[in-house]
Amino acid sequence: MAETAYWEAIRRAHDEEMANDKMVIAMGEDIGVAGGTYKATSGLFDKYGPERIIDTPISENSYTGIGIGASMVGMRPIIEIMSINFALLALDTIVNAAAKIRYMSGGRIACPLVIRTPGGTAHQLAAQHSARLARMFMSTAGLRVVTPRGPVDAYGMLKSAVRCNDPVVIIEHERMYNMKEEMPEEEFFRPLEGAEIVRRGTDITLIGYNYNVHLCLGAADKLAKDGISAEVLDLRSLKPLDRETIRRSVEKTHRVVIAEEDEAPVGVGAEIMAAINEDCFFALDAQPIRVHAADVPVPYNARLEKEAIPDVEDVYQGALKALGKI
């Protein structure tokens, strides 16, 4: 076991998968000579060369499209999009092409590619660098959408995503790249599907994904001091969604809070509330609570930014509400 940062975990997954299969290539802005904005490909340009670690121009839609085209003929590209805001430029190729080619070819052509992109707010990056958009990708049939909460999943899920035959969108988070976790030194894979119970509890279920799993864990600590046992669920995969694990947890605790960094309308929380209503409505002892971002473009000012985005206290307060304590 060794303590590994999130960015190092991603780098290691790239390195191992590229060594394992020469059809694996990486593409993105500044990922090669410059080593990547988040260092996720640092050192790999020297090791694998410019044909496999491809520095792209600032043309998100078309370099993503080139990755998709390459995936159609047996390549396994890992595409880095520097910010999920920029992924909006590539929505045509991601949503209209990658997500639909298998289906509209009657299953005759696959697009096995990985799109990695950080989605979330961090250090006053303001409205055009702070989008989250998980909900948008989550609503697109033909994509897999996963949200690794730490280095172990960041490594193990990227490796699985490279080998899987579907287009996989991996949503990372600016605030997690330096987060550390103990990680086995031998190779391992983490499955792309399935929610994980990261903390067992009996009184309330706190559901998160991506960075906000850590908010749920923080809230669970606070609740424990109040004598309340919270179960924390990391969704891990937003598409497909593991409704079964959600249902089992809610049937056990009867109360639920969903933490999302996205805005609420038509959001991840809304989808999960709908799933709970459909799957285990009669198990609920109280209305489900969503903890979410304010419905505003993310402000620059640090105080306003903090207010716009949920934190541990917000999840804790949401739990108290679900528990009928406030």
């Binding site: 080139i66 085209g69 003929v73």
Partner: peptide, 25 residues
């Protein structure tokens, strides 16, 4: 034959990707 596409201009990058894959292989 790698497809017909309804988004005007979308095949440009896909074609370049097919070429990139072909060159690589």
């Amino acid at each position: 034959f790698m497809g017909g596409y309804a988004l005007v201009g979308q095949p440009f990058p896909l074609a370049a990707g097919l070429a990139l894959g072909a060159k690589h292989r």
